[in-house]
Every structure is written in C-alpha cells, then in structure tokens.
C-alpha cells in the first residue's frame, strides 16, 4: 500500500496537469485596455450651447455699439419698401464696401430708393426726418459740395432749423431738386451702410465640469494625426439655430486651437455645422476653457420678416467619439 499510494498520486497529478492551457494563464490577464464599447463604437456627447441675441451681434464702426436690431431698424428706414424686381431680400454683402461690392446691384437699390423718395411722400418724410436727426451735418456738407448756390442756401437753413423744420426743408429739396440732391442722399446712405459691417463675436466657454474619469475616457486612447485609418477619433460638430431674418456667413472657431469650422452659410432656422476632427491637445484646451469666436458677414436680409431684441442665434456644439471609451 505504501508503494502504491505515491504512484497513484503521481498518476492523478499527471492527468490533471496534462490539460493545462497556457493561453489562459490568469497571471497574464491584460487589463490596460478595459473600455466601454469597441473599435466599431461611436459615442456622442453635448458640449456647449451658446446663445446670442441682437445685442451680441453688433457693429462698432460708428464708435457707438449698435445692436443688430438697432442697425436694421434704421436699415428699414433707408431700404426701399419695394425692392428691385420684386425681390424679398436685400443682399447686404453686395452693397457694402468690401471685395464683394457689386456696383450694378448697389445702383439698383439706390435707384429704387430714389424712385420712392420722389413718389412716396411718407417714405420721403421718414428719410428726411432721419437725415435731420442723425445725418444733418453730413447732408449739409454734401449740399455745399454740390456748388449749387440755391442748395447752399437750403443748407444754411437746415443748419439752424429745428427737427421739424429741417425735416420739411430736406423733404422739399429732395422732391424739388431730385437730380441735385441724389448725390447728397447717396453720400448719407453710404455713410449708413458702413455701420452694417458686423463685429466678430467672442464668447468665453468655461472649463467643462466633467470628472477626470470622463475626461480620460474621451482622451486616453485617441489616435494621432500620423495614424492611417484611425479608429479612435474625436469629432466636433454642431447646429446653428438662427432666429433672425438673415442669411449669415459665419466662421466659428476656437481661439488658440486649430478648431476652425471654416465658412458656413447659415439660413434662418436650423443649420448643420459639419463635423471636423479635433486632436487631443485641442480637446484638452477646449475642456479647460477656451474662447469661442465667430465672424459674421450678412449675406441677405429679409426686410418683411420681423425680429426683436429677444430673437436668438444659438450655436450648439457636440462631440462624437469613435472607438471605445477607455477606462
């Protein structure tokens, strides 16, 4: 029995050890790649929603900061009520002093305005009153520059008149001296149009309050730009919800990063901001707090659609991560 027992034990031990599978060595378990999802996964996350009102979209070219509402309340005075060819909108960028200036289009607007000044007494009075209130000196100087002695006399009268008298005089000479006052009206109109150049908008996005766990999940396993066919990537996209009766061209970007969405045309209503890939460093800067900037060019204005000081332009940014979220 003493001889058999060890032999039996050895046989049993041998049988048991013969079925060892070293592929499943539990001391070699890889735990660094634990993640939520897999290489085919996709995760979306809200990032920031930035609200702009008329007060944020403004001009500062005249030295006074004018809101979009203030600008276009005045624009409604200047622009003809009936646009050339029955158009519903004015292509603002084509009448501003810039690379896109279209003299023929500008002339058509001016021509339509002049027609209304001659044929619509209410329009004439409105503009005359506005000139008397805001642009009196500019108009007077323009009259003097004509060299017409009669207009020079009117200029002197306007200079000393009160608002009502000046309005009446200006209205009168626009009607009676149409051809002579065209240039003066155009000078004042062009002076107004300068205000329609809009300032760039800057908004500070604070530090995103997500825990370090979440932050690491987003950033840890990102492929850098040298990787061909990257799997783990971050993309930034968004929506621009434009409540204003304008078509803008915007260029949203984040300062001190390479996050730049390029030129985007934004119609009234919801607009998609196409996604761009962002790299780890830029995402870290964004999460730590950054400045969101946006240039605006007014492409088109629909004068018969109203808006208020409470009307909003809203940019919503969201993130998309491809690949797994590393734990």
């Amino acid at each position: 029995m003493k001889r058999i027992t060890p032999l039996i034990m050895l046989i049993v031990l041998g049988i048991m050890t013969s079925c060892i599978d070293k592929d499943y060595d539990l001391s070699q378990i890889e735990t660094d790649d634990i993640a939520v999802g897999n290489n085919q996964s996709e995760f979306k996350m809200p990032l920031a929603t930035i609200h702009f009102t008329s007060y944020n979209i403004c001009s500062n070219t005249s030295g006074d900061q004018l809101s979009l509402k203030q600008l276009y309340d005045e624009a409604d005075i200047w622009f003809p009520t009936n646009l050339p060819d029955g158009a519903e909108y004015i292509e603002i960028y084509r009448i501003l002093d810039s690379e896109h200036f279209d003299s023929a289009y500008f002339d058509s607007i001016v021509h339509a305005l002049e027609n209304e000044l001659q044929n619509d007494s209410d329009k004439r009075t409105l503009i005359a009153s506005h000139i008397a209130a805001k642009y009196r000196n500019t108009f007077i100087n323009a009259l003097y520059d004509t060299g017409n002695s009669e207009l020079n006399q009117y200029a002197a009268l306007i200079l000393d008149a009160d608002q009502a008298e000046a309005t009446a005089i200006i209205s009168e000479i626009i009607l009676s001296h149409a051809s002579e006052t065209e240039e003066a009206v155009q000078i004042v109109f062009r002076r107004f149009l300068q205000k329609l150049h809009l300032e760039n908008i800057h908004t500070d996005i604070p530090k995103i309050e997500i825990s370090s766990d979440i932050r690491d999940m987003l950033l840890d396993n990102l492929d850098d730009s040298s990787v061909e066919n990257p799997i783990n990537c971050l993309y930034l996209s968004g929506d621009a919800d434009n409540g204003f009766p304008f078509i803008f061209q915007i260029n949203p970007h984040v300062e001190n990063t390479s996050i730049d969405f390029g030129q985007i045309t934004v119609h009234q209503g919801a607009n998609n901001i196409e996604e761009i890939r962002i790299m780890r460093d830029d995402m870290q800067r964004l999460l730590d707090g950054a400045t969101f900037s946006m240039s605006l060019i007014t492409m088109r204005y629909y004068p018969h659609r109203s808006f208020t000081d409470e009307t909003e332009f809203c940019v919503k940014l969201r993130l998309r991560k491809t690949g797994a979220l590393q734990l």
């Binding site: 378990i29 890889e30 790649d33 634990i34 993640a35 897999n38 396993n221």
Partner: peptide, 11 residues
C-alpha cells in the same frame, strides 16, 4: 489574454 471588457474583443 484579454478580458471581456477589452476593446479588442468584438462585441
């Protein structure tokens, strides 16, 4: 030897 939670293991 990866865990079930490894991103390399297809779902």
């Amino acid at each position: 030897l990866s865990t079930i939670f490894s991103s390399a293991v297809p779902s």
